[in-house]
Design a binder for these strands. Structure first.
Length: 160
DNA sequence: GCCAACGTTGGC
DNA sequence: GCCAACGTTGGC
């Protein structure tokens, strides 16, 4: 029994890693390392291959949903947690009991017109989106199917 | 660069 | 288990 495809949103600062960087990556794929928040990690552990991801540019002008990626590998240990030279090194984590996971995502498309936070806030049907909730900072978050459909429609995009 | 909101840590 | 202190996120 194959589980139904689910929808997610993942944030990245474009000055660090943009959707253009993803599109230029080998096999248009990257591993989503560096997540150090338990709730975000748990969402990644819920992901399945084929799940769809809204790619969001945070700390950007403007902050916006800019395109789509797809999960191509489920959660596996994030190697940067064991790397003393990494900014994401976690001395409390060990290879026998890894604390942090990552998934791999592959580029699908960049929206012709990205959807800024302001634009999304204008949609009453999106008012419950995790992204738009006051104080929400989660870098990996679930998106409902209805939200997904509406956002694709607003972007003039087709499901990939 | 500011700062509100949130998460984590650690003393007690 | 409480909560103050600290660190981070991310919009502005």
């Amino acid at each position: 029994m194959i589980r139904e495809r689910r929808y997610w949103l993942m944030k990245s600062e474009p000055r660090v890693f943009s959707i253009e960087d993803l599109a230029r990556s080998p096999r248009r794929t990257t591993c989503w390392d560096g997540v150090r928040n338990y709730q975000a990690r748990n969402f990644m552990r819920d992901m399945a291959v084929g799940d769809q991801v809204l790619f969001y540019h945070s700390n950007a002008e403007p902050a916006a949903v800019v395109g789509i990626a797809e999960v191509v590998r489920t959660a596996h240990p994030d190697e940067t947690q064991f790397d003393k030279t990494s900014h994401h090194y976690d001395p409390a984590s060990t290879p026998s009991a890894p604390r942090w996971d990552m998934v791999d995502i592959q580029y699908r498309q960049t929206f012709k017109s990205s959807l800024s936070l302001d634009r999304l806030r204008q949609e009453p049907k999106l008012k419950n989106m995790v992204l738009l909730r006051k104080g929400s900072r989660l870098s990996v978050q679930p998106v409902t199917e209805a939200e997904w459909m509406l956002i694709l429609a607003l972007a003039g995009a087709r499901a990939s």
